[in-house]
Design a protein around this nucleic acid. Structure first.
Lengths: 349, 349
DNA sequence: TTTTAGCACTCAATGAGAAAGAGTGCTAAC
DNA sequence: GTTAGCACTCTTTCTCATTGAGTGCTAAAA
């Protein structure tokens, strides 16, 4: 764009200080205040001229004629992309965060701690999508009879994640058979991916129904029921902590908007949709105001980062706050937390 | 109290209609409106006299001189205790609720569904304390080695509740030993209470350290680590759904109060404390406004009911809403939900 | 050509009155 | 004991003027 050339160094500095000032106090910034804060030896009138240009470009706007200027979503975008400098966290802080995120078989609990951590460190709302792996590596399975036809299946994937569900059989099954079935599956499939196992089982079920003895058929049938297929996989879920922090910001005072926002938190799908989008990115991803694509999130920004286990992205975490959040501080926090969570999940040590 | 005699039948009817009207529209009720609503062929002036008496007794109050009357917490208490008539839910409704609460090994999920159910049926905020049993009946245990000294322990209590944690051993342990240990525990302790098992194990560990072979010592040590003792038992937790519903009530418009309320939801201990109190009650328990004992909950009421498995109370659920909530409707809903949740947990069928 | 001083103008925020409306408390009559 | 009548209180709502912040424009200065 040719118009980009309009933003010379001085205009950039002014925009930068404007955004920073607005982030820190939430008020529209006037020309005189900007002169002082920027340190440029310039008159307010000149600043006003520049502001008019920035407004033309859609980077700032004024709420009304006699107010100062406020950054637009585009303004924030420009700030985030080219004006701002993120410093990595000091190692002290990193160590503090790491202390909270140790490996833990209680996935839900771990995610919750990560979310609380994000929220308390940033004083915003933290959210962590529960990990969903394309391929989980099978470790162990166990069948426990509840009644003749109802069986509690417990299995372990990815070293230490324990999952379980109840399955229903067509015909009664005795404990011995169950034990055999479990042994069979454990010996044969340990270390393989769940998807692969499922496929193999389905194949065998079709091709070899009568060539194998009955307990194997049972084993296969049970495992087929027990291991959720791609399609059945639970729709995704996330935990959110520190929602009340948002109420400390004056711009959230509109009760109707706040209600809708919290409802979105509860209904989940909009947040999940956004987190899903962020999963494709490589590192920290930022959605500013309207960029989220949802009305409810107008006036809010997201800072997210995918977390991954052995190179594969398995989930996303981040924060949600008012658009005027402290990006310089929040971005590295989210970044590091994602890495630490990945590490905690990757508990090979 | 002699003053109690002051509340004659007519005054009671007036109080009743006043409360009902205030519940339905949230506004102070004036004498003329009360005459109409009550159906008594009485003049407003008379009603005013009666209102003065009720105010004397602390059952109603007026926000200011020229407003109508509003029930006080005491007024609501009287209404709830003696004026109101709760009708049991029709069987259709019960069936509908029951459909949502099937037995499920995913405890957390079940609790969440119960909470969501409460919230959506009442349009208030639902909460369910996670079950905590004095005695869990041991069903099965399994040790999976993660590394030489780190072991993933999975055990099942109460038929279908799967729990797990990681334990650390002093000395390396091979898979065969682990298997033997698990077999030993499974055979010897199936069906016993966790508390009893723990005690037995501790005893044996002291008395018979050298008389048994090494794997048994290991088994005992592991189990001791794995089964949390009374004191270590997790401090209690609860799930809450439908918080945003509260924002639909005008009396919650004060942002500061709302913030504190949601913060209390997140910090949990106040709610847990309240739920704990309610656990001692036999059936539905109601806390109105100030009765909760916490400032934050002023203006809110709780309707709770303990739920139990085979006679023993294991948790509490309920709703929180503004004091002017529809008790007649909410009470049976909470009551039934508690019973249904107990039934779902008591999955013997 | 850019910067700046000067000034008129716009608009939100604040506060003071006035008017309306709701509902009470009191008194005196029924 | 009940009620009509009435003065009184207090909130709510509206209008109107005032203040103050900050702009946009114009014309002069650099």
């Amino acid at each position: 764009m040719a118009t980009d050339t309009a933003i010379d160094a001085r205009a950039q500095l002014l925009l930068k200080t404007l955004v920073e000032k607005h982030i820190s106090d939430g008020q529209p910034v006037g020309s005189t205040a900007l002169v002082e804060a920027s340190g440029l030896g310039i008159s307010p009138a000149t600043v006003r001229n520049i502001m008019a240009e920035l407004e033309e470009l859609g980077l700032v706007m004024s709420p009304h004629t006699s107010a100062g200027r406020v950054p637009t979503a585009q303004g924030y975008r420009f700030f985030v992309d080219t004006l701002m400098k993120v410093r990595p966290l000091d190692s002290d802080e990193v160590r503090e965060l790491a202390g909270e995120l140790k490996p833990d078989p209680d996935l839900q609990g771990l995610m919750r701690r990560a979310s609380t951590l994000l929220s308390s460190v940033t004083r915003l709302t933290g959210m962590v999508m529960l990990p969903r792996r394309r391929q989980s590596s099978f470790r162990h399975i166990e069948f426990l009879p509840l009644s003749e036809k109802r069986i509690l299946v417990i299995w372990v994937v990815n070293e230490l994640e324990v999952q379980n569900r109840i399955i229903h059989l067509d015909h009664p099954c005795n404990p011995g058979e169950l034990q055999q079935a479990a042994n069979y599956l454990n010996e044969r499939f340990a270390g393989q991916s769940m998807q692969a196992i499922r496929n193999t089982l389905l194949e065998e079920l079709h091709s070899a129904r009568e060539s194998v003895n009955s307990f194997m058929v049972t084993a296969v049938e049970m495992a087929k029921q027990a291991f959720p297929g791609e399609a059945e996989q639970p729709g995704g879920d996330y935990v959110l902590e520190g929602g009340s922090n948002l109420m400390e910001y004056a711009e959230m005072a509109d009760m109707e908007k706040l209600h809708d926002l919290f409802e979105a938190f509860e209904r989940k799908h909009k947040i999940l949709d956004l987190l899903d989008k962020a999963a494709t990115a490589q590192g920290v991803q930022i959605f500013i105001g309207e960029e989220s694509g949802y009305q409810v999130f107008d006036g809010c920004s997201f800072v997210t980062a995918p977390y991954s286990v052995s190179g594969e992205t398995v989930g996303v975490l981040g924060i949600i706050g008012p658009t005027r959040l402290n990006y310089e501080r929040v971005i590295p926090v989210v970044d590091v937390t994602a890495k630490l969570l990945g590490a905690a999940l990757n508990s090979k040590e």
